[in-house]
Design a protein around this nucleic acid. Structure first.
Lengths: 207, 207
DNA sequence: GGGCTTACGCTACGACTCGTAGCGTAATAC
DNA sequence: GTATTACGCTACGAGTCGTAGCGTAAGCCC
């Protein structure tokens, strides 16, 4: 995450095991303590490393939590269910399952809050979390266009705006349902949501 | 906010001016410092009150910020623009204008993050912020049904689910656009969003 | 093997924030 | 007046932060 060069040429290499232990310890601390009570000293103790090691690798709490939470989104993928509606329902359920985990809930919202005042942090979040999600929208859209379920848009700028819109609607609705309304994203809800997304409110209200 | 009884019977009453000064100072501190660097001592100094006065009125940082942010949403109202689409566009623009303010951005997300581990805080947020927004959905929906733009739903449980869904989609999309994508909610975006919400993706993509 | 370079563990430190206790004073109700 | 509550102020222990310094460990290259 924080180092792209696996072989910095000379000297003792950084322990990859320590990295994994630290990120796992961070998630565990998020579950048990939440964001505000999480301290780097505590994470270091849980991971079995010295506090100074943490500060050598991450600039602070924000960056550490971003990396720890980002790993949760690795498993996201868009499996082909045969139709656009089924594909959407599948990926929404995956996304919701991740957001349902307590380490994602408390950690993600907190770093997003911090990112409103820290552009570098926002960029880090975008690279390691947001763009990974948005890629799924692009995939699903292209797949649906191949199937003929969605019309192709000639203007690339217009298409980009549409993708952004879909992304904000899908991710926003799931996040809001999970973290603000604090209600479960169950198959029933996902079905209703997909119905609205594809066919609109007026059509969806009269099945 | 924290006291519903305006006349507690005896003794020196609490200064209403101090309340207003503290909440205003909190918002100012949110703008200048952000959530994580905001301290109650600093707020007390800005407001011209003693730190102990803050602790006598609020349990902590979370509750104070909730009240300070909640006041921002007082101005939300659903003006009648003649059609459901216009009504939605109007209220979404209002909502986005509030979220665009830095004191709302950093404060709201942070307390939401904290609320994932604090049920009392979540309830406080629901009462003073979320429910005030959801009321608009109920109003707009009833108005559209009177106009004949939306069908009436016989089953009240089904209707409640629909209102919850609309609320999560609208609020979620705007919040995600503003705070995660960090892109402006301009009239163009609102038009596209309303189009998708009312008529669905397949229809909206081919204007 | 020896030497170079970097990572690690450990300790200690000043600076800061937290939330509370205690006390004298100010403002209202009766 | 008197009772009662709110306020300002000071001081305090506890906890956290991020860093410096030092000795040791683990790899590369000759």
């Amino acid at each position: 995450m924080q180092s792209r060069t696996p072989a910095p040429r000379a000297g003792r290499p950084r322990s990859a095991a320590a990295d994994a232990a630290i990120l796992a310890a961070t998630r565990q601390a998020l579950v048990e303590l939440g964001w505000s009570k999480l301290t780097l000293s505590d994470v270091a103790t849980r991971a079995g490393v010295a506090k100074t090691t943490l500060y050598r690798r991450w600039a602070g709490k924000n960056e550490l939590v971003v990396d720890a939470v980002a790993e949760l989104f690795d498993e996201l993928e868009l499996t082909d269910h045969g139709s656009l509606a089924a594909d959407i329902e599948g990926v929404v359920l995956q996304f919701a399952a991740i957001l349902a985990r307590p380490e994602a809930r408390s950690g993600l919202m907190a770093v997003l809050a911090e990112s409103t005042r820290d552009d570098a942090l926002r960029e880090r979040i975008r690279e390691s979390i947001v763009d990974r999600q948005k890629r799924l929208v692009l995939q699903g859209r292209a797949r649906a266009q191949r199937r003929g379920e969605l019309p192709a848009q000639a203007d690339p700028a217009e298409a980009a705006r549409t993708v952004d819109l879909i992304f904000d609607v899908v991710a926003g609705a799931v996040v809001h349902r999970t973290l603000v309304s604090a209600e479960p994203v169950d198959p029933d809800w996902v079905r209703g949501f997909t119905q609205v997304l594809l066919h609109g409110l007026s059509a969806a209200e009269a099945p």
